[in-house]
Simulated assay, not measured.
Amino acid sequence: MATHLITGAGSGMGRIVAQRLLARGDQVWLLARSTQRAAELGAEHEGAVVVVADLARPHELESLAGSLPDALDSLIHAAGVVELGPVADLGTQVWQEQLAVNLISPAVLTRVVLPALRARRGTVVMVNSGAGLHAHPHWSAYAASKHGLRALADSLRAEEHEHGVRVTSLYPGRTATPMQAKVHHQEGKEYDPAEWIDPATVAEAIITAVDLSEDATITDVSIRPN
């Protein structure tokens, strides 16, 4: 039985990945930001184990070291936050939150579970964004966090190759998730989910990376809406 740890399983592609892995009989661990949210995730994803730590407070992840599995087949970073605005208007708190959730917490959580990943020659999947490749006006803070996530993945891949740990970065374009609805609201645009990538498509790519034969690594994949 494979064992996985997933962030961002409350919505979007993270939710679908968790559902599919549980349905095939894998052991799934989820991260929740509060005890209330943990109860909700536990009810939604029957059979999953839920632990509590807030990604907006990266130091809280340190306390998970003794309460997570000793061996992991995958760590899937699917959580993320976004707040748009010009550099001239973005406050310090906005920058700090996006960097904490989108970059610092993935780095800390990965470090905490690296021994478990090495034990299974596991895979780290970082759900990045098209903003991790190109920064557009009003996307500075989010894009900076995602550019940093790409650098984290590249460094980690090189460092952990000798231990058999694989690292995959996915760069989805606009995907029909609650985050996308928020982005459209901030942009002052009407939102039609049918125009964008189905989150199930991204979930399929995540699971493909996790299940890939051990003789290869999917390093970087860009997924764009038609």
Rank of each mutant, 00 (worst) to 15 (best):
L5D: 00
A9V: 03
A9F: 08
S11K: 11
R15H: 15
L22M: 02
G25T: 04
W29A: 01
A32V: 03
T35M: 07
Q36H: 11
A43G: 13
A43H: 07
E44F: 09
V52E: 05
L55C: 09
P58A: 07
H59Q: 15
S63H: 15
A65E: 15
A65H: 13
G66S: 09
S67G: 12
L72A: 01
L72N: 12
D73A: 02
L75E: 04
V81P: 04
E83H: 12
L84K: 13
P86S: 05
V87N: 13
G91N: 02
T92L: 05
W95Y: 07
S105I: 01
S105E: 02
L109Q: 03
A116E: 13
A116W: 10
A119C: 03
R121S: 07
R121I: 15
N128W: 12
G130E: 06
L133I: 04
A141I: 13
A143R: 05
A144H: 09
H147S: 03
H147E: 08
G148C: 00
A151C: 10
L152G: 06
D154M: 05
S155I: 10
E159M: 02
E160H: 03
G164R: 09
R166K: 02
R166A: 10
T168V: 09
S169P: 05
S169Q: 05
G173C: 03
T175E: 06
T175L: 00
T175C: 02
A176F: 00
T177P: 00
P178M: 11
V183K: 01
Q186G: 05
G188A: 13
K189I: 08
A194M: 07
A203L: 06
I206V: 11
I207R: 07
S213Y: 15
A216T: 07
T217M: 07
T217G: 09
D220R: 10
S222H: 15
R224V: 15
